[in-house]
Amino acid sequence: MFGKELIRGIYTENPVFRLLFGLCPALAVTTAADTGLGMGLATTTVLLGSNLVVSLLKNVIPPAVRIPSFIVIIATFVTLVGMTMEAFFYPMFEALGIFIPLIVVNCLILGRAEAFASKNTLGRSLVDAIVMGIGFTISLGLLGAVREILGSGSILGFQLVPGTVDMALVFALPPGAFISLGLMLAALNYIAIRRKEA
């Protein structure tokens, strides 16, 4: 059961590559694998918190004010995560910068709250948060890894090619994010089409 859900989060409904959710952080912070993973984990934490609370309160919140309520809940968790990171994981906090507070407007979180947690049981909402979070984290980590390898020839700070080799700096820059994401989307779509045809 959980395995099937996990595949849903990682592949069939992958938030970044299939649903195209949360592209802003996916493009902005994935200059290296570690920042991508860090962003993914921070987002997963917020997602877990917001899905939990939204699912618990789904019968209490009047439908007319549900969006403001969700936003307040999400913003609270984002701020909590931000403060905790600043206190205990400062280098990651600094590397992610403005994109931590911007998790508030990540449509993945509001999307899951609105489309899933507000209609499902606590248990299912938590599972959804976990699998979606994992899918998001893996996507950002993957994108970050591709950009780190092509852009600086290293992975998670470990140098793969000698430092004297000039890697394509463009992948560490914003245009490289678009190019990498575009190529990865194209590859995934190609695989999906081939599967359907088969």
């Binding site: 004010v65 403001p68 309520s69 809940i73 609270t76 403060m83 905790t84």
Partner: peptide, 22 residues
């Protein structure tokens, strides 16, 4: 009432964590 309550709880949680991390 509900929105106010959510905001109040959120505020309380934030104040608590802030006091701890600041």
């Amino acid at each position: 009432f509900v929105l106010g309550l959510i905001a109040a709880v959120a505020g309380g949680a934030l104040a608590g964590v802030n006091a701890w991390t600041a």
